[in-house]
């Protein structure tokens, strides 16, 4: 049997059970609308400003870094699968390993560069920055 039929069936179940719970809850629960309840929680204060705040750029940097590296893992996957069969098939180790070493090497260079450029440096305190510039002078 095609395994994806079963997976599809599980997907149905995985959506169906929560939906069923929602339905049950909808039947059970009361509804007492009231202004104060639906205000968003801000430690009990009246919410100020919009939620669409500008947040730390680092979140974005990390996301970018991830997008790149995650896709690289996609490219490593096929290699891991054929690695052992290839070796057993008589290929020399360097022949199979070297390309991936190069690949990972390039990745690591990129990672180190991003790291040193501060892509994954969450906080840059003014004091640390000051010390850095002084050291450079």
């Amino acid at each position: 049997m095609n395994p994806w039929i079963a997976i599809g069936a599980l997907a149905l179940v995985a959506v169906g059970i929560p939906v069923a719970m929602m339905v049950v809850s909808a039947l059970l629960r009361p509804s007492v609308p009231e202004q104060g309840k639906s205000a968003v929680y801000e430690s009990g204060e009246i919410p100020t400003g919009t939620t669409r705040i500008r947040f730390n750029i680092q979140y974005y940097m990390v996301a970018l870094l991830f997008v790149v590296f995650d896709i690289e893992t996609v490219l490593i996957f096929p290699w891991t699968v054929i690695y052992r069969p290839a070796l057993e098939g008589g290929a020399s180790m360097m022949e199979v390993l070297a390309p991936m070493l190069v690949f990972i090497g390039v990745l690591v260079v990129g990672l180190v560069w991003a790291w040193r450029q501060g892509a994954v440096q969450w906080v840059s305190s003014p004091r640390a920055l000051e010390e850095k510039t002084e050291a450079n002078q």
């Binding site: 049997m1 039929i5 079963a6 599809g8 069936a9 599980l10 149905l12 179940v13 995985a14 059970i17």
Partner: peptide, 13 residues
């Protein structure tokens, strides 16, 4: 097959 799979899924889930 689908019915069987559904049954199995319900069990596992």
């Amino acid at each position: 097959a689908f019915v069987a799979a559904l049954l199995a899924s319900i069990i596992v889930g």
